[in-house]
Design a protein around this nucleic acid. Structure first.
Lengths: 347, 347
DNA sequence: CTGAAAGCGCTTACAG
DNA sequence: CTGAAAGCGCTTACAG
């Protein structure tokens, strides 16, 4: 392999084009104050020399890194859900020539803010302009990030234990109306005995989903029934194990709203095993529109969350914050959408 | 919100600690040439002022960005498979205070190298030190990247149409021995009529998996049978549609090696629909150990690919390349592992 | 061991 | 419109 050649600098380009370095810089930054001939001569020289400007030097003067960090906290793994959000961040960012750094963080909600060990990106400054927080967000992390004056936007469906005064930019999606619409849809199809299979209701988003379902039942004078369990192994597991509790109820439920698609998948798999059919024996509705929804047979009717849009909106909001640091904080809640597929029977 | 305060610079720290800026820099870079008292006084001042050095300025002098880019090409979405590789890259990188930028690229194999539109990261220099290529890799992209002298490592299971002289660093996993071991396992369990359900064999990795299966059959004097289709809609779809072709064969196969877990999932789902059971009616083996493997019932016996390890190895190899630019190219093939779960019956 | 100075590769008033 | 100069926030010989 040939030795990596020393990179061409702006000075060499200036010399080759017989202009000052300032002129090269002006061409690069597409300043209007350059004559057409000069600009073209410079552009040609740049092409000929294969010159690519040094990003660091520019940044130091611009005081902008043109880079943000997508920080995923307390996740053992970048699940498809967050992967899609990241994708949304990246595609919106790259259109604006902004870059996206990926970093992961593990921390406990009980660690005092000043003892949280931030990832390397946040130990220097100038590397990134701002932060998009995804994963589980506790108050101590927020406090820590505020203490280093790093602008941020949080994907907020997993914000836990925050007081109402806590002000910051956030983007979320509409858990409540998601289950509300799903429940109304079931009722519209003639269902009256509908249960909510929740898993562990202590998650704030599951709580909101339950409330949406409850609202739907209440406005139709129907009784809400919560199927929960304390700390199940996994959502799929909870779904599998709770089908018995659902089907043995009197009167027997004709439909179940699952807290998410994984629970719905667990319910379905368990039904399969007992040679029961969806939606013939029971109708099923999920939440999230994950991969699992299409792996089911028939495919699951579920509440779609627009994950890429969440990412885009986070990025957009962060950029606004960077340009207007004193802007008041905003909290955007993106709509969810009920997707009709094959798991609901018309009674 | 308070105005973001102007960042503290090394000069201010120097003044506050009553030393020269060079000394601050030496402390920061943990040079040994600083006396204990001075170092401690400086460290204390840094803490008191909340000083975090400017990353850009350091980089410009060090000629190292301490950042690499994970470039995902020609994927509509960051699937769990690549997400796990990214995770491996990030966790290994962050331990070494290296940063990971995520970028996506779409290009055609027929675009001439000089007309490929590289993502913004690669249009400047100094932003990243090197590249980890994932996704589909055609010769024109490689040529383009070599033309800008950017060091890179490729995750190579999807390298397409490369001539043998093409030399570059690559990390892959062992497709051939994966199916070979799976096939031997089936034969060890008494199976003789075993088919390979491949989907579209034109993918190089599927080809290698088929060859591994064929080798296993040949060494036991058994006849290899390939179930393929020209351009199926999806792997799951192919699996669903080809179960009929498999079961109608004479003599009837007792086992199928699927080209990947998605195909296995499709086969399973189709069997379910016809009230047939795995492994009672037919044994099944997959490849990749994706999420789908555990979503099946019983869970799928499959060939595990260590995705995080691939990411780690890519990062490690790239770092070696950066430190030794003239090192000869290497091609590491990581072992795969056959995971026994519930889909193979002992005949 | 430490300070003062030169320099990294750019941008941006300043002066013409 | 353009060049020469100062400067961004650091690192690193150089000299003591």
């Amino acid at each position: 392999m040939e030795v990596v050649p020393r990179k061409t600098t702006i000075r060499e380009v200036a010399q080759a084009a017989a202009v000052g370095v300032g002129t090269i810089s002006r061409v690069l930054n597409s300043s209007s104050q350059v004559s057409r001939e000069t600009r073209e001569r410079v552009l040609e020289t740049i092409r000929r020399l294969g010159f690519r400007p040094n990003a660091q030097a520019r940044r130091i003067l611009k005081r902008r890194a043109e880079m943000v960090c997508f920080l995923l906290s307390n996740r053992d793994f970048l699940h498809p859900f967050h992967a899609r959000i990241l994708q949304g961040v990246e595609s919106y960012a790259s259109g604006l020539k902004q870059h996206v750094l990926f970093a992961a963080l593990h921390y406990s909600p009980r660690t005092p803010p000043d003892r949280i060990d931030l990832p390397p990106v946040l130990q220097e400054h100038g590397l990134i302009d701002g932060l998009i927080l995804a994963g589980t967000i506790y108050p101590n992390l927020l406090r820590k990030i505020e203490s280093i004056h790093m602008p941020f936007v949080a994907f907020s469906n997993n914000v836990v234990g925050m007081s109402d005064e806590q002000q910051f930019d956030q983007v979320g999606f509409d858990d409540f109306n998601g289950t509300l619409h799903a429940t109304r849809y079931l009722i519209g199809k003639g269902h009256r005995q509908i249960v909510f299979a929740a898993g562990d209701i202590s998650y704030p988003w599951l709580r909101r989903r339950f409330e949406g379902y409850r609202q739907g039942m209440r406005e139709n004078k129907l009784k809400a029934v919560l199927i929960a369990a304390r700390s199940p192994q996994s959502f799929v597991d909870f779904g599998q194990k709770s089908i018995g509790r659902i089907l043995s109820r009197q009167p027997r439920p004709t439909a179940a709203v699952a807290g998410n698609d994984e629970i719905a998948y667990g319910l379905w798999r368990s039904l399969q095993r007992h040679a029961m059919k969806v939606p013939d024996d029971i109708s099923l509705v999920g939440f999230d529109d994950r991969e699992e929804a299409l792996l089911m047979d028939p495919p699951l009717s579920t509440v779609r969350v627009h994950k890429e849009e969440i990412g885009e909106t986070c990025m957009k909001m962060l950029l606004e914050r960077l340009h207007h640091p004193r802007m008041t904080f905003s909290h955007r809640i993106l709509p969810t959408e009920f997707v009709i597929r094959g798991t609901v029977r018309h009674l």
